[in-house]
Simulated scan of single mutants.
Amino acid sequence: MTAPRRAAICTAVLLGLLTASGCSAVELPSAAQATPVESIPVQPIAVVTGSITSVVSVPVTAVVRPEYAVVSPGDGRVRLASSLTKDKEVTAGQVLGWLGETTITAPTDGILTYRLPDRTTLIHQGIPVATIRYPGFGVTGTVPVAQAFRLSADPSIAKVQLDSGPGVTDCAPQPTAPAGSSTPSTTTPSAASPSAAVTSTPAQSTVVEAPTTAAATLEVLCLLPSGTGVVDGLTGTLGLRTGEVTDVLVLPVAAVAGAVDHGDVALVVDGTVTTTPVTLGISDGVLVEITGGLALGDQVLPFGPNLRQTIS
């Protein structure tokens, strides 16, 4: 049999097999035939009541003698105690200074590693007035910036589970010491070194400005009690409970455009969709508390207003 004849027979057999197996050409829909996203029907969801426990889980590592910051509880002029001296011991409860009538105290025993350079300083809330080196162990980790808003309120309860270590242990969350806080910068900080900037005013007082940073994570620190029985470098998981509410109005987080305090929803009334502002409470990453702007039973689209769909 010649080669051309063998090729013709093989081609005929292959075509026969394809036909027998039901293979046929498929005509794909054109772009004009595709269903636009806007016309996909979406069923609204109702505002309901529920309970939320906001817990942020963070992978952590045990560290020896960590430094933490003592921050200003508000905006105003901080006056430091005259006895406050760098590299000296402080005790838990010792008065470090005052913001108006509010007393600022040391949370734990330790060594003072930094204090504001002037005894009287104009300062913003959350800026460190001092840093203290804790004499024991702590755990540190980083929270992705997407979850950092959930730590805007001080955690009410913190527990850590260390791998191959002691069982679940309570710990004390503390603000982390800014980079270079032992030798504070006197210039505007860079993203790589978010220390507080210190500038002089004509009145010879010092204004401490909030640091600027482009970091994609937020560092967290939790101090372990004495006698926990850990070693440097031990890893584990830290759980920070930032709040708990019961019998409150809730929606899935996907239904709200916004994350902290305020947001928008796509409210559905008689088939008409309206972007409606709402106020927000705590979130557990799945549900978010609605503190204002909606009532029980209100209907909203399951996606935020920026992802609005047609109602079925």
Rank of each mutant, 00 (worst) to 15 (best):
233 G>Q: 10
41 P>E: 05
117 P>A: 11
20 A>S: 13
116 L>R: 08
292 G>C: 07
55 V>S: 04
68 Y>H: 04
156 S>E: 14
8 A>H: 06
306 N>H: 13
173 P>V: 05
182 S>D: 12
148 A>S: 15
127 I>N: 07
216 A>V: 10
73 P>Y: 11
81 A>P: 01
202 P>Y: 14
19 T>E: 08
75 D>W: 11
299 Q>T: 06
227 G>F: 11
46 A>V: 10
26 V>T: 15
202 P>F: 10
94 Q>R: 13
12 A>N: 06
303 F>G: 10
277 P>W: 02
103 T>R: 14
306 N>A: 14
65 R>G: 01
311 I>Q: 10
110 G>S: 09
57 S>R: 07
73 P>H: 13
234 L>G: 12
252 P>F: 02
101 E>C: 04
18 L>N: 06
218 L>K: 11
245 V>L: 09
300 V>I: 03
47 V>R: 08
188 T>H: 07
27 E>K: 15
233 G>P: 11
60 V>W: 01
184 P>R: 13
146 A>P: 02
18 L>S: 12
176 T>V: 13
297 G>S: 06
34 A>I: 14
53 T>P: 00
232 D>H: 08
188 T>Q: 11
193 S>K: 10
244 E>N: 03
190 S>T: 15
129 V>H: 02
57 S>Y: 03
227 G>W: 10
55 V>Q: 00
3 A>N: 12
105 T>F: 06
20 A>H: 09
154 D>R: 14
107 P>A: 14
74 G>T: 04
137 F>V: 02
132 I>E: 02
172 A>P: 00
26 V>N: 07
197 A>L: 12
268 V>H: 01
201 T>Y: 07
85 T>K: 12
236 G>C: 07
158 A>T: 11
34 A>P: 00
173 P>H: 00
102 T>V: 10
228 T>Y: 09
123 I>M: 03
289 E>H: 10
299 Q>Y: 03
228 T>M: 11
202 P>D: 11
37 V>K: 11
33 Q>V: 15
98 W>Y: 12
228 T>G: 08
68 Y>P: 03
143 V>F: 01
10 C>N: 11
134 Y>S: 11
40 I>Y: 13
101 E>K: 15
273 V>W: 06
260 V>L: 15
244 E>K: 08
289 E>V: 09
154 D>G: 07
100 G>S: 15
294 L>Y: 03
80 L>C: 12
228 T>K: 14
294 L>I: 11
174 Q>H: 05
91 T>P: 01
9 I>E: 13
216 A>N: 13
154 D>E: 14
168 V>W: 09
298 D>S: 09
246 T>W: 00
298 D>W: 02
266 A>H: 01
299 Q>A: 15
207 V>S: 10
158 A>P: 06
256 V>S: 02
262 H>F: 12
93 G>W: 05
183 T>L: 15
53 T>E: 04
250 V>P: 00
255 A>I: 01
263 G>E: 05
288 V>Y: 01
257 A>Q: 09
105 T>W: 07
210 A>L: 15
253 V>R: 02
199 T>L: 05
296 L>Y: 13
309 Q>D: 02
45 I>D: 01
196 A>Q: 03
14 L>C: 14
142 T>W: 04
191 A>V: 14
170 D>C: 04
15 L>C: 15
275 T>M: 05
82 S>I: 05
28 L>F: 12
